[in-house]
């Protein structure tokens, strides 16, 4: 049941990120390279969610097979999503703020 939920959750997140990247690219908020990069990253994450044993194989190589790989995989997917959205959003807000402040400063300057 948990595995099924993980698969479903990862798929939903991947769809959100990929569609958001495509939409941002279309509205010229994001470059093609960036849209392709995030699509590839999330495609890879979705594959790992559907085949979590891949993570186990990797983790087994790293931690002598304690079987904690699946749990780590879920956590990583979530952290990745949060980090990506926060950074992209913060960057956009900062840019918007900079543009507004510049415009206000220059408006007074022109008077």
């Amino acid at each position: 049941m948990i595995i099924l939920f993980t698969k479903f959750f990862s798929l939903i997140l991947a769809i959100i990120v990929i569609s958001r990247s495509i939409s941002d690219f279309r509205s010229k908020k994001e470059s093609l390279i960036m849209a392709v990069f995030w699509s590839m990253v999330w495609l890879a994450i979705t594959i790992l969610a559907f085949y979590p044993q891949l993570i186990d194989i990797i983790i087994v190589k790293l931690d002598n097979g304690t079987g904690i790989g699946t749990f780590n995989g879920i956590a990583l997917v979530f952290i990745m999503f949060i980090c990506y959205r926060i950074y992209a959003k913060a960057h956009r807000v900062e840019q918007g703020l900079r543009k507004i402040a510049t415009q206000v400063g220059l408006k007074d300057f022109e008077k």
Partner: peptide, 13 residues
């Protein structure tokens, strides 16, 4: 000539 920014943007801004 003075240009007055309403908030602190930082060196680059």
């Amino acid at each position: 000539r003075l240009i007055n920014l309403p908030i602190n943007l930082g060196y680059g801004g």
